[in-house]
């Protein structure tokens, strides 16, 4: 009995000792920082004045009456929707094609995944050359077909579109991997019985595959929302939010307010809004997942 008790106490000591480093680090740099940013969002402070001033929710009300902020919000949603409606079907389609475990399939899966590994800054630089207004490959191509060359990144109506294409290029392979994994989890006997019933390929995809992989689709949708909301590097390298603010998304707005204008309160409020939105999305995914999961026999 005595020995058991000491063992138990020993376990508690060891347990906490082992957990402590991570808890401390996450407590300070993650949880603590969220608390800190919540507090900062209530201050008027530009880092230069020695005394931050407590102003309650003024930063939020100012944020919500700032047309630039709403511009950033609508642009972020445009970016999100524009990328997601392409990347979801495209990655599903490619995953369907590459589903089997052949060596060649794996090679192509790797090729599609490669852009994810490449530093965004490097691919964005190549992208700005690809879409260069004068000598970019895309414009050369357009000229070849006697189509008018486009200014792309220096045109407020086209710049965000170019960034969307970069995002799609970068993340399709990532989602292909996720979809392949989801597809391989669908038991083959389901398809076999459908084949006996004379189902066509499209019927099989529509009535079996898609319903069965909704959890994967949900997960990918959530990831895509998070990735697109946090797309900072792409904007910074390609356009710095311009031209004429046409590519300033929420995350870039946060960067400008915080690290260029040093408006700590405003930037903090933006961070909190972004955070609450992302938590909400994650919560939805969690909810949706338990509702949509198809239980197999």
């Amino acid at each position: 009995m005595q020995r058991l008790l000491t063992a138990k106490r020993q376990n508690t000591a060891i347990g906490w000792l082992f957990v402590l480093p991570v808890l401390l680090l996450l407590g300070i740099f993650s949880l603590g920082s969220v608390g800190y940013v919540a507090y900062l969002s209530l201050l008027k402070w530009n880092l230069i004045t020695p005394n931050p001033q407590f102003i309650g929710f003024t930063n939020y009300s100012q944020l919500f009456s700032d047309p630039y902020f709403w511009g950033a919000v609508s642009r972020t949603f445009l970016y999100l929707i524009g990328t997601t409606v392409v990347i979801l079907p495209l990655s599903f389609f490619l995953a369907r094609l590459l589903q089997d475990r052949l060596r060649t399939s794996r090679f192509f899966r790797g090729l599609f995944f490669l852009p994810y590994v490449v530093p965004t800054v490097a691919s964005a630089i190549a992208w700005s050359w690809l879409f260069d207004g004068n000598h970019g490959l895309v414009n050369l191509f357009l000229r070849m077909f006697h189509l008018p060359a486009q200014p792309w990144l220096s045109n407020p109506n086209e710049a965000l579109f170019v960034i969307m294409l970069l995002y799609i290029w970068q993340f399709t392979g990532y989602f292909v991997v996720l979809y392949i994994n989801g597809l391989q989890a669908v038991p083959t006997h389901v398809y076999e019985s459908a084949m006996i019933d004379g189902a066509t390929t499209w019927q099989k995809i529509w009535h079996i595959t898609l319903p069965l992989i909704t959890p994967t689709t949900f997960f990918i949708l959530t990831m895509s929302i998070i990735f697109s909301f946090l797309s900072f590097d792409q904007v910074y390298v390609l356009t710095q939010g311009g031209p004429a603010q046409s590519t300033t998304t929420i995350i870039y707005y946060l960067y400008e307010e915080g690290f260029q204008f040093y408006d700590i309160g405003r930037s903090g409020a933006t961070a909190m809004v972004l955070f609450i939105f992302l938590i909400f999305i994650t919560f939805l995914q969690f909810k949706g997942e338990s509702k949509w999961v198809h239980h197999q026999m």
């Binding site: 347990g15 690290f259 903090g268 961070a271």
Partner: peptide, 26 residues
């Protein structure tokens, strides 16, 4: 098996959803 294990696990799980980018100012 140690006392407080669930709490520690809960703390780690809760930080899983925090994107680092929003904590860059603090």
């Amino acid at each position: 098996p140690f006392r407080g294990r669930k709490i520690a696990y809960g703390v780690i799980l809760s930080t899983l959803m925090i994107p680092t980018q929003i904590t860059f100012i603090p």
